[in-house]
């Protein structure tokens, strides 16, 4: 791959992960456990979709095929999507939703913190904006993990179940592949070892405060999202998300 292709590939992971998690959260619109939670979930989703658009627009410019952000989001199939597997996992109960958000937010926060100092100015600019938003996301999801973990017997049990259920998808967040390493070497993305340490450190700190138990660092992990190998859930998300665009291309008449 050329340097440009590596950058596109890396940026698509950021864009697709934001997009798919944003879409997942939107499924809770009208179904959240409380009004305040509904507003918070939709605000987080909105931030993620907005960030996805910023990344997609840059990818579209880099590839120079005349595609735009909408086409990248709505006209690619599951095997072309490069989102992290954790983002496509179902909402489950609220503990699962918050476990997924927390794991992702910690990764997102430290990734963006690295990207803010990117040698690529455009990347640094998009990341600086996103980092302010994601700081709020992380504050909120870590508060929920603590509240549920250190709450009642039932909330503790459910939160621990959520952590255990999704742990197998977290390896992908911090296990660097060739693309991650080349992006780090080029000074575009975060140092991969640092990202791993930061993620593990903060996750353990919050889980400890929440009286929850992390799984071992060498637990078995699902990988593949970054290569386009997904769990069975992604196709269903795309079917719903892309239906309108596919049935009524460009949706010009309303």
């Amino acid at each position: 791959m050329t340097d440009k292709e590596i950058l596109q590939s890396y940026l698509l992971r950021l864009a697709d992960s934001d997009m798919i998690l944003g879409q997942r959260l939107c499924e809770l619109c009208g179904k959240a456990p409380a009004l305040e939670e509904e507003m918070a979930l939709m605000n987080v989703a909105l931030d993620l979709v907005g960030q996805a658009r910023n990344w997609y627009e840059y990818v579209a410019e880099l590839e120079g095929k005349g595609r735009d952000a909408d086409q990248l989001a709505f006209l690619r199939d599951a095997h072309d999507y490069r989102n992290l597997l954790i983002t496509e996992q179902p909402n489950g109960d609220y503990a699962v939703t918050m476990a997924r958000q927390f794991f992702y937010d910690v990764w997102h926060y430290f990734t963006l913190k690295g990207l803010v100092n990117s040698s690529d100015e455009r990347v640094a600019g998009i990341a600086a904006k996103a980092l302010k938003e994601v700081t709020y996301h992380l504050r909120r999801s870590s508060e929920w993990v603590k509240r549920l973990g250190d709450g009642t017997e039932e909330s503790h049990r459910r939160m621990q179940d959520g952590i255990d259920l999704l742990w197998r998808f977290t390896g992908e967040l911090i296990q660097a592949d060739d693309v991650d390493q080349q992006i780090a070497a080029a000074g575009i993305g975060p140092d991969t070892a640092q990202l791993t340490n930061d993620w593990r450190g903060l996750v353990k700190e919050v889980l400890q405060e929440a009286t929850l138990t992390p799984q071992p660092d060498d637990a078995w992990m699902y990988l593949g999202g970054k290569r386009g190998e997904h769990t069975e859930h992604l196709g269903f998300i795309l079917a719903e998300m892309q239906f309108l665009q596919r049935a009524y291309p460009d949706a010009k008449v309303w």
């Binding site: 918070a40 709020y136 909120r140 508060e143």
Partner: peptide, 9 residues
């Protein structure tokens, strides 16, 4: 604080 997020982002 009631919620970290309000009627708009």
């Amino acid at each position: 604080q009631v919620s970290e997020f309000g009627s708009t982002a």
